[in-house]
């Protein structure tokens, strides 16, 4: 009995301390997240962590505890005094808890978050989106903004770059093919559209058009935090590592200015 009490107290103390620590850093568990979707993921991460940390500590502590309290003092083989092969209470609690935790996790965050994500995807909720056509080719991200007649957004160096306004819902239209090449069925592979700071990625598959909805929640740029970049996350050949593009999230007026610059650049 004393073993249980000692173990239990240490476990509870450590778990509380760890969860307290988690609550201190919970806005940084995914480092730098600046989208509604990303915050959903980060909240889910923190929620799961709050429950899983005690579970992990229980087992890890038990292993350490074994090394300290349950070790044979010398290497001789002595039959253990205790030979329990079954303990209904322990097994029942273990099984019930693992079911309870898993069902809880599936209901929340999984099912609840999927509902939220699903709802955000309804077209009815997305009427005034900023549409960004994203074309993935080997190895380049090409951004075009049809609403503003920008066919390929580039920065001063002529490299693909994207700027988005903060707080406005963006509809990314994702396709994988090579627009600089006559159509060849062999010439497109799977890419994955990922902005680390947005907390979401979507594979871009040849032959399919996919949509992703993201609302940036604060201004940031690749220069201030390199997680604000478009990055290919699915291996797509030798150039995969360099298939990235800087991203900026700016205020509304700054976005309008950027649009003007881009339009001007297009006219030559």
């Amino acid at each position: 009995m004393t073993e249980i009490v000692i173990f239990g107290l240490v476990w509870i103390a450590l778990s509380l301390a760890a969860d307290l620590g988690l609550s201190q850093i919970k806005s940084h568990t995914m480092y730098f997240i600046i989208s509604r979707q990303g915050h959903l993921a980060e909240d889910a991460f923190n929620f799961l962590a709050a429950f899983l940390i005690p579970v992990a500590i229980f087992v890890a502590l038990f292993l350490v505890y074994t090394l300290i309290r349950f070790r044979a003092s010398n290497g001789d083989a002595v039959r253990s005094r205790q030979q329990t092969v079954q303990n209904k209470l322990f097994v029942t609690v273990w099984v019930a808890l693992s079911f309870a935790l898993n069902i809880l996790f599936w209901l929340h965050p999984t099912a609840a978050d999927l509902e939220t994500m699903f709802r955000r995807d309804f077209l009815a909720n997305n009427r005034h989106d900023l549409v960004v056509d994203v074309t993935a080719r080997q190895w380049e991200w090409i951004f075009s903004l049809p609403q503003y007649h920008i066919t390929q957004a580039v920065n001063r160096q002529g490299l693909d770059a994207l700027t988005l306004p903060v707080g406005r819902r963006v509809e990314f239209v994702l396709r994988s093919y090579d627009p600089f090449h006559s159509y060849d069925v062999q010439a497109a592979v799977i890419h994955s559209f990922w902005v680390p700071a947005f907390g979401i990625k979507e594979d871009v598959v040849p032959g399919e058009t996919r949509y992703e909805f993201v609302t940036p929640t604060r201004t940031a740029s690749y220069a201030t935090n390199p997680m604000v970049r478009v990055q290919c996350a699915e291996v797509c050949g030798p150039g995969h590592a360099w298939m990235e593009a800087p991203l900026s999230v700016v205020s509304g007026p700054a976005f309008d200015a950027w649009v003007k610059r881009e339009q001007k650049r297009q006219q030559g």
């Binding site: 993921a41 889910a44 999984t110 978050d113 907390g199 996350a233």
Partner: peptide, 26 residues
């Protein structure tokens, strides 16, 4: 057992699609 514990616990995070969409392929 310790190592697999960490592997298993992080697997629970990966099982949640919103988290997965961020950490998949990383």
């Amino acid at each position: 057992m310790f190592n697999f514990l960490i592997g298993g616990i992080t697997g629970v995070f990966l099982a949640d699609p919103p988290i997965n969409l961020q950490v998949h392929d990383t």
